[in-house]
């Protein structure tokens, strides 16, 4: 990837250990005569191996932030560095490569391809990259073992429960060993039991392999499993608390919403 980096003229350089480094990030949606300022100047640094939860009221800009970090959307202004590489000004082709090789995504709606088996869904990012299925199978098995679905390899998504589907999504997001794992409300569609299972697993993964994870959630209990919780309000970062204590998180949320 190094040769593809387009350095933008910039004063600040990210610290060496930053997985995500954001400075002065804004996002304005122009829709006809009105424009919505979804992000109004975000500054954020996430170290390698951190598990960060993002919280905030509806419309505060959480998803927008995730989309920009995930190279799905362009920023209006500011700087964004992922794994030591600036992504501002990259063309579509390079953004695609970034998504494929450096970023893993877990969506709220399980987003598996319905005609592919669990195993094939896990291998999908590498299949897209043109690798042959034979060589990928072992790695896919490891990942399915990791998420506890060894027995479900040959099942189609329609034969899996919501929680199981989401666990396949997690395995898929790890397939290319990405620098950054982004999850936008991954448990939003699950009941509390399944949500807890998925979260435990995410934490396991993070603990074992040291991936950097950013997760949006509305659930304080879910957020409390993260190592750090940051809060967004009206497109700006409005404080942060360390993970672990759900009550403290709830308190901060309450303060935000009033």
């Amino acid at each position: 990837m190094e040769q593809q980096v387009q350095k933008t003229a910039t004063a600040s350089q990210p610290p060496a250990d930053a997985a995500v480094y954001v400075r002065g990030l804004t996002k304005v949606y122009e829709s006809g005569p009105t424009s919505v300022e979804a992000l109004k100047g975000i500054n954020l640094t996430i170290k390698r191996g951190e598990f960060v939860a993002v919280m905030g009221p509806s419309g505060s800009g959480k998803s927008t932030l995730m989309h920009i970090l995930g190279a799905l959307e362009n920023a209006t202004s500011g700087e964004v560095w992922i794994g030591g590489q600036s992504i501002i000004g990259l063309d579509d082709k390079h953004l695609t490569l970034l998504r494929r090789d450096a970023i893993g995504f877990i969506f709220q709606f399980f987003n598996l391809l319905p005609t592919l088996t669990a195993e094939e869904n896990v291998m999908l990012p590498s299949l897209i990259a043109g690798e042959s299925a034979g060589k990928l199978r072992d790695h896919a098995h490891e990942l399915l073992d990791l998420v506890g679905l060894t027995e479900r390899r040959e099942h189609l998504p329609s034969q899996l429960s919501g929680g199981e589907q989401q666990r396949v999504s997690v395995a898929r997001s790890l397939m290319r060993d990405p620098d950054l794992l982004l999850a936008d409300e991954p448990t939003g569609n699950l009941d509390s039991k399944n949500a807890a299972a998925v979260l435990d697993m995410l934490r396991d993964v993070q603990a074992k392999s040291g991936h950097t994870i950013m997760m949006v959630t509305h659930d304080a209990t879910v957020a409390s499993r993260a190592s750090r919780v940051i809060f967004l309000r009206d497109g700006l970062i409005d404080g942060e608390v360390p993970g672990g204590d759900a009550n403290r998180i709830l308190e901060h949320l309450g303060a935000l919403e009033s």
Partner: peptide, 8 residues
């Protein structure tokens, strides 16, 4: 999804 996980 294909595009999000890296299809050109």
């Amino acid at each position: 999804v294909l595009r999000a996980i890296g299809s050109g």
